[in-house]
């Protein structure tokens, strides 16, 4: 591999293709710890699926007991399990505690390999436009970190620009690293 090529990291690029149209997390800073807290609104939308899935599964069980309509029970139950499982899958990222712990000295997002805090070089804010065929397109913002070894990891990804800016400033101060703004005008 060409060494010079392997060192190029494009900080203007966003890391994730998609993003929610709401505020998903906020940053909470304690004395030696900074962590992301999911918002109630974000959790609510996942809970809708779990509730609907649970309701349909219960309805299927009820139908199985009071009637002999096995086909309807299977149909309703199948939908219920699928929707409920989907809700559980959706809520999982919100339940994951992403933290920057000064005591242990690591950044842990329960997904990627842990990063030592002193390996974090800078934070970047990027913007993107999410486009869908059957929904209004919207702006979305990312807060990403860059490590000493050139790894980029996403920290925040939502569409509340003010909150993200505020959290980014607080986190850069907490970590003592530079915050770079790579937002640009996007022409579609």
């Amino acid at each position: 591999m060409n060494e010079s090529e392997s060192c190029i990291v494009d900080l203007t690029r966003t890391l994730l293709k998609d993003g929610p149209k709401f505020l998903s997390h906020t940053l909470v800073i304690t004395k030696s710890n900074a962590y992301l807290r999911p918002t109630v609104g974000a959790m609510m939308f996942c809970v809708v699926y779990i509730v609907v899935g649970g309701f349909l599964s219960s309805l299927a069980a009820y139908l199985l007991v009071v009637s002999t309509q096995y086909d309807l029970s299977i149909f309703v139950g199948g939908f219920g399990i699928a929707i409920g499982a989907f809700g559980i899958m959706l809520i999982q990222p919100f339940l994951r505690r992403v933290s920057f712990n000064k005591t242990s000295g690591v950044f842990d997002n329960r997904k990627d390999r842990n990063v030592k805090l002193h390996h974090i070089v800078s934070l970047q804010i990027n913007n993107k436009i999410i486009q869908r065929k059957n929904a209004l397109s919207y702006a979305c913002y990312e807060l990403n970190l860059l490590t000493l070894h050139g790894r980029r990891i996403n920290i925040l990804n939502h569409n509340n620009e003010d909150q993200l800016e505020n959290d980014a400033v607080l986190l850069s101060m907490f970590l003592g690293v530079e915050l770079k703004d790579y937002r640009r005008e996007i022409i579609l």
């Binding site: 939308f45 959706l90 869908r132 929904a135």
Partner: peptide, 10 residues
């Protein structure tokens, strides 16, 4: 439509 959850639309 209210939540705008990206994975659901996908």
């Amino acid at each position: 439509i209210v939540g705008g959850m990206p994975s659901i639309a996908s």
